Amino acid sequence: MDIHIDHRTCIGSGQCTLTAPTVFTQDDDGYAALVPDGAQTATPRQVTQAALSCPVQAIAVGNDPPDA
């Protein structure tokens, strides 16, 4: 499962961290970051729910890498 956080869009609301704390954390500036190997401990539903909880839709989940 590929998870991409658009750091230009993220506002640091923390909803992803509250929804899937084994996958998402917040960096020193308060913005979303991925927990190393965290995606392997969560269910696809948890990751999808976290992405949907983002108020600015800064999280993309899929099987292919995001467009650069």
Results as ranks from 00 to 15, higher is better:
D2L: 07
I3D: 02
I5C: 12
I5P: 00
D6M: 06
D6N: 15
R8D: 15
R8A: 14
T9I: 14
T9Y: 04
C10A: 10
C10K: 06
I11A: 09
G12A: 06
S13E: 06
G14V: 11
Q15C: 09
Q15M: 02
T17R: 02
T17W: 01
A20Q: 00
A20E: 03
A20H: 02
P21W: 03
P21M: 09
T22A: 12
T22Q: 14
V23P: 02
Q26D: 11
Q26E: 10
D27L: 01
Y31F: 12
Y31A: 09
A32K: 08
A32I: 11
A33V: 11
A33N: 11
L34A: 12
L34F: 14
V35I: 15
D37F: 13
A39I: 01
Q40G: 06
T41L: 13
A42H: 07
T43H: 13
T43V: 14
P44E: 06
P44V: 12
Q46G: 09
V47Q: 09
T48V: 13
Q49S: 08
A50W: 00
A50D: 10
A50L: 08
S53A: 08
C54E: 03
P55D: 08
P55I: 05
V56S: 11
Q57L: 12
Q57G: 08
I59R: 00
I59W: 01
I59P: 01
A60L: 02
A60E: 04
G62P: 00
N63P: 00
N63D: 13
D64M: 06
P65Y: 08
P65W: 14
P65H: 12
P65M: 04
D67F: 07
A68R: 09
